[in-house]
Design a protein around this nucleic acid. Structure first.
Length: 275
DNA sequence: AGAACTTCCTGATCGC
DNA sequence: TGCGATCAGGAAGTTC
């Protein structure tokens, strides 16, 4: 599932191969994926002639800056952008296609149809981004602000890390990795965290996200980048998906539990709960 | 206001 | 072996 490192990898791929291309027409076969003022019709009417100027990212959202509209897009679980020749057969999981003037397509493929492409007027970009209500990214976490936010919640830390308004970009895989690295129990209540644990979480967030970006993200099940390549961070996972495998620090088998309705992996010896 | 629950989707996996 | 039930999960919407 794409989290910030995977989205960043996709962004870099799109920058490399799609920036500069111009849309001739669009085909949408699952309308719910596209959200635009004026609906699908506005999207279909507006996109032809748009040239992709650059691709940005905020948290797990991709930002496609076209000539005079912007897409604020989310891959959710399995969304992918593919750049393919127009004579390549279109599979049933492709739901949005931008036919480009260079003879290729920019295709949005999403088996579960959870992803979204929100088109806004260029002038409304800042307001639309503000509406996402995203917190700082891991690299920009500030101890005092993060602590203040933690001190007023009774939610378990795992749920807090998944809350995009607290930290933007962390999903289920990296939340488990961060808490493992910081030696904090996923069910530890936010308001009960010690300062040294908060510091450890901030540092682990920064380090793990950065390390994952450096190797192209994590491929679990289905993620690939725009070139169809896997990310390699799965080779470095120490908690996520490691159920029953020995903890790399102490050898205790990694356990899997549910926290905030999410599958959660942790070491019951290294990550213990306290008052 | 904050927190929890529901919904959207479909392929993979589980249990009998 | 076969088949129905359950699981996986991010964020928006709804409810309490």
């Amino acid at each position: 599932m794409p989290e910030m490192p995977e989205v960043e990898t996709v962004r870099r791929g799109l920058e490399e191969i799609v920036v500069g291309k111009t849309v001739a027409s669009v085909t949408v076969t699952w309308p719910r994926i596209v959200q635009a003022e004026g609906g699908l019709e506005a999207f279909e009417n507006r996109m032809p002639g748009q040239q992709l100027m650059k691709v940005g990212r905020i948290g797990k959202f991709l930002l496609f800056y076209w000539t005079d509209v912007v897409w604020i897009a989310h891959l959710r679980m399995e969304g992918k952008y593919l750049y393919e020749k127009q004579d390549t057969p279109v599979d049933p999981y492709t739901h949005v296609i931008c036919h480009l003037t260079d003879g290729n397509d920019l295709r949005y493929r999403d088996v579960r149809k959870f992803g979204r492409i929100h088109m806004v007027d260029k002038a409304d970009t800042d307001a639309a981004i503000a509406q996402l209500n995203l917190g700082p990214e891991p690299a920009d976490l500030n101890f005092e602000d993060f602590k203040a936010r933690l001190m007023r919640t009774k939610r378990p830390i795992k749920a807090v890390l998944l809350d995009q308004s607290v930290v933007a970009g962390i999903g289920n895989i990296y939340a488990d990795e961060i808490l493992y690295e910081a030696k904090v129990h996923p069910q530890q209540i936010g308001a009960s965290l010690y300062d040294h644990e908060i510091t450890a979480i901030i540092e682990a967030s920064r380090d793990i996200i950065q390390a994952a970006i450096a190797v192209g993200g994590t491929t679990i099940r289905t993620y690939t980048n725009t070139f169809g390549e896997n990310g390699h961070f799965a080779n470095y996972l120490k908690a996520y998906g490691q159920t029953d495998n020995p903890c790399q620090r102490c050898g205790t088998p990694i356990e899997k539990i549910k926290v905030a309705q999410r599958g959660t992996h942790y070491c019951p010896h290294c990550q213990t709960i306290h008052e």
